[in-house]
């Protein structure tokens, strides 16, 4: 990771850093996919051209801090990390959370899903099985 030299800007009031944190989180939320620090910085700059002097190391610092607060999930990719927001308080979609895992691993290989994907025929069959159950017969679909 890049050496965190302490820029003068960091002596700005805490409120500013808090606002930046929220902005970073918002960017990650909107993205809906894990982003690297470079991506986050680019998107921040695109959002408001005003903070054109936003340093890369500042973004890394914010991301690291958010990660330490368990607000971000991170995954190493090459030499950099990619970050995605953690669910719970923030209410992030589960599939966004799993996006990192999807990217690196065969999801079905290591995750045990409660139910697998269902084809239309499977759904029809399920409804028949359940319908038969409520109507008293036990094996409607055999044969």
């Amino acid at each position: 990771m890049a050496a965190l030299r302490k820029p003068q800007r960091n002596k700005a009031p805490r409120r500013a850093s808090g606002a930046l944190e929220s902005a970073v989180l918002a960017v990650l939320w909107e993205a809906g996919q894990p982003l690297s620090a470079t991506d986050v910085r680019e998107r921040l700059l695109a959002h408001d051209g005003g903070s054109a002097d936003l340093a890369y190391t500042t973004v890394v610092t914010i991301l690291t801090r958010l990660h330490e607060k368990n607000a971000l999930y991170r995954q190493r990719e090459g030499r950099a990390y990619r970050y995605a927001p953690v669910a719970d308080e923030a209410g992030l979609a589960a599939r966004r959370l799993s996006a990192l895992l999807d990217a690196t691993a065969d999801r079905n290989a290591v995750l045990s899903s409660f139910v697998n994907d269902l084809s239309d025929a499977d759904e029809q069959l399920l409804r028949a099985l359940l319908g038969a159950r409520t109507h008293g017969t036990s094996h409607p679909a055999r044969g």
Partner: peptide, 30 residues
């Protein structure tokens, strides 16, 4: 590699309970 990613994922999920509930309209459980 997949299992390492999964282990890391399991560690990184918030809270210490075995169950994690995510705010998501899509019905999913794994």
């Amino acid at each position: 590699r997949s299992l390492a990613a999964a282990f890391g994922h399991a560690r990184a999920l918030p809270g210490a309970a075995s169950l994690v509930i995510t705010q998501d309209q899509a019905a999913d459980a794994y």
